[in-house]
């Protein structure tokens, strides 16, 4: 486990060093949430590659490091599509690929309102060995993360997930609420969950100089997420809930770093989950991949 953490830290440090050395332009100030979605979609034509990792140790299990690699593409200004590739490594067991997720987010209204809804549709093809904790639904809990990889990887799950994302940008604060419903396409009840987050940049106005450590490059907030039971037992009993401060740092060269230590608040939650995220945005990726599209602003 220590080796995994050490190598990840070394890689992150190297990337940071390179970013600071090149001093290239930064990208948009995205929110550093790991579970909660906002109504900010990817700019059209851009491709963001982000890794979201989770490090934890269940009470009766081994340390693990889970990694979700996210490819997020702005298909339209009102439509973002994403592909996740998930994997995990558990100390004393194995490192395995656990599946993929394909998700789409749509903004049904073309204007900005005090509360902005976004519709989210996802298909998952993952195994029970997945430990990325990108959402907590139903009665998900610590016991699910203790099963040996050899056993849990054999259990394949095809799931559909719907989310209602409500998000507001008020006086430089972002406030987002997600209502999650997930259905195993086999014989299983609908499972429900929630995520809530607030965040704000440390400084509103930008300084007129190129800098990496200016206050406006940092964003801090709080995230809370958990399960709400399922259609057969809509209750808080045996559900997991986490509270997690979040920190984001907008790096030069279109990169973004985020960190979040999460703390379980119920008996079925893990005590601590540490998350790291590193994102890189490719501008005008559609021009690289496809022929240039025609379009206009006015």
């Amino acid at each position: 486990m220590n080796e995994i953490v050490s190598k990840s830290c070394q890689l992150a440090a190297l990337v940071l060093l390179l970013a600071a050395a090149f001093g290239l332009p930064a990208a948009a100030q995205d929110k550093p949430y790991f579970v909660t979605y906002t109504h900010d979609l990817e700019e059209p034509g851009n491709l963001e590659v982000e890794t979201k990792s989770a490090f934890a140790r269940p009470e009766k299990g081994h340390h693990f490091a889970a990694l979700a690699t996210e490819l997020e593409y702005g298909a339209r200004a009102w439509w973002t599509t994403e592909l996740y590739l998930d994997g995990q490594a558990t100390v004393g067991e194995s490192a395995i690929y656990t599946g993929f997720r394909w998700e789409n987010r749509f903004r049904p209204f073309m204007h900005e309102y005090p509360v902005n809804p976004v519709l989210y549709v996802e298909f998952e093809d993952i195994s029970a060995a997945d430990k990325t904790i990108l959402e907590v639904v139903g009665h998900d809990g610590e016991p699910d993360l203790v099963l040996p990889n050899a056993v849990s990887r054999a259990d394949h799950q095809h799931e559909g997930e719907l989310k209602l994302i409500l998000s507001s940008n008020v006086h430089d604060w972002n406030i987002s609420e997600n209502f999650i419903s997930e259905k195993n396409l086999g014989h299983a009840p609908w499972e429900f969950g929630y995520a809530f987050a607030v965040a704000r940049p440390l400084r509103s106005a930008a300084t007129g100089r190129v800098c990496t450590l200016c206050a406006e490059k940092f964003i801090a907030g709080l995230e809370a997420y958990g399960g709400l039971g399922d259609a057969w037992a809509l209750t808080f009993r045996d559900t997991s809930h986490y509270v997690a401060p979040v920190f984001g740092w907008q790096l030069p060269a279109h990169m973004r770093l985020s960190f979040s230590p999460g703390f379980g608040v119920t008996g079925t939650s893990m005590d601590q989950v540490y998350r790291f995220g590193l994102a890189y945005e490719f501008k005008d990726a559609d021009d690289m991949l496809f022929s240039p599209r025609k379009g206009k602003v006015w």
Binding site: D40, W78, N169, A205, V297
Partner: peptide, 23 residues
């Protein structure tokens, strides 16, 4: 800038702090 023009490809920049939009 805050609203954008999503239909025609202009994203909403409401995620930027208001002070930065004025700048």
């Amino acid at each position: 800038l805050r609203q954008g023009d999503l239909r025609h490809g202009m994203p909403s920049w409401s995620s930027l702090p208001q002070a930065q939009r004025w700048q």
